[in-house]
């Protein structure tokens, strides 16, 4: 058992100060701006909760919220099982698995704004490697809503699968071999081994995967904007695209109110998630 020692705060303080500067202060500022109408930095008026009422009352906001939630759900439903499957597959290769981990981690080091560009180049009808084939089967990501969805989901999966695989593999490879040997002696099926031995022991790794993937897919901007800027006909208009429009339109008060709302949504999900994990632990 670790001893109780409040001198530990000295060691934690630098981290806390740094986070207060780059996270705490800006967060308070956003909260404050959200209650003001901002023309310039010197011409600011108190408007109370007007912005919040406007945003929450608009159907566009609710529609975008729905789309973002759907996108996150789909991204998690595809990437988490797929990532675990790949990690299990690699686990079978023992120490050679590292040759699989390195390539799947590769998309993680690609600058975010280059990812949509790489994919748009790949499916470009004339010059892309996949372009002619996709054009032949009538794949039209510019003007058909669900095709754009498919493309963004594929690109997002390409981008982030590596993180799921690496973290799931980390959890799986930490399970002592004795557990699997015992299960093999009992004649447990592959599914039973996964369900009762592997899954419970990688929940810590999966929890962080879930949270990171939820937040990043819920707040997807770079890829979605570059691929179709919310189109066609707002079919891929996610929450962040609306925020981006307001910032570009210098509507700072409203943008800040919106940012506050997004932060609160993310916070609520994280809090519920952590509370649920803690409950299972105790």
């Amino acid at each position: 058992m670790r001893p109780h020692d409040n001198r530990a705060w000295f060691l934690v303080t630098p981290a806390l100060l740094l986070l207060a500067l780059v996270g705490g202060l800006p967060l308070l500022a956003v909260l404050n701006y959200g209650f003001h109408d901002i023309f310039t930095l010197t011409d600011v008026h108190w408007v109370g909760v007007d912005w919040f009422a406007d945003i929450l009352g608009s159907e566009r906001f609710l529609a975008s919220l729905g789309r973002s939630l759907l996108f996150s759900t789909l991204a998690l439903a595809i990437q988490v099982p797929l990532g675990i499957a790949v990690a299990l597959l690699l686990l079978g290769y023992g120490r050679h698995a590292v040759w699989g981990l390195m390539p799947v981690a590769l998309p993680l080091v690609v600058p975010w704004n280059m990812i949509p560009m790489l994919w748009l180049g790949l499916i470009q009808p004339e010059t892309g490697l996949l372009g002619p084939g996709l054009a032949a089967i009538g794949f039209d990501w510019k003007f058909t809503g669900w095709h754009t969805w498919v493309l963004i989901l594929v690109v997002d999966t390409w981008h982030w699968l590596g993180l799921v695989v690496v973290l799931a593999y980390a959890g799986l490879s930490a399970i002592p071999p004795a557990y699997r040997q015992a299960a093999a002696i009992d004649g447990a099926s592959r599914w039973a081994v996964f369900r009762h031995i592997e899954l419970p022991r990688i929940t810590g790794a999966l929890a962080i995967v879930f949270l990171l993937r939820f937040v990043d897919s819920f707040m997807i901007y770079t890829e979605a904007f570059a691929i179709n800027a919310g189109g066609p006909q707002d079919a891929t208009r996610f929450l962040t695209l609306e925020l981006g429009e307001e910032i570009k339109g210098f509507s700072y008060g409203q943008a800040a109110a919106r940012a506050t709302l997004y932060f609160l949504i993310v916070l609520a999900v994280v809090w519920a998630f952590v509370a649920a994990t803690r409950e299972r632990e105790t």
Binding site: R2, P3, H4, D5, N6, R7, A8, W9, V12, A15, L16, L19, G23, L25, P26, L27, A29, V30, Y33, L211, L212, V215, F218, M219, Y221, T240, L243, G244, I247, Y252, A255, A256, A259, T260, Y262, F263, V266, L267, V270, V274
Partner: peptide, 26 residues
Amino acid sequence: RFTGDRHFLMLILVFRVTPPVVLSLP
């Protein structure tokens, strides 16, 4: 263990998941 260690962990988790676009303006 120290007073507030779990709160500290929760705090850094919150900062890790704060979307950058929310903080970009301030």
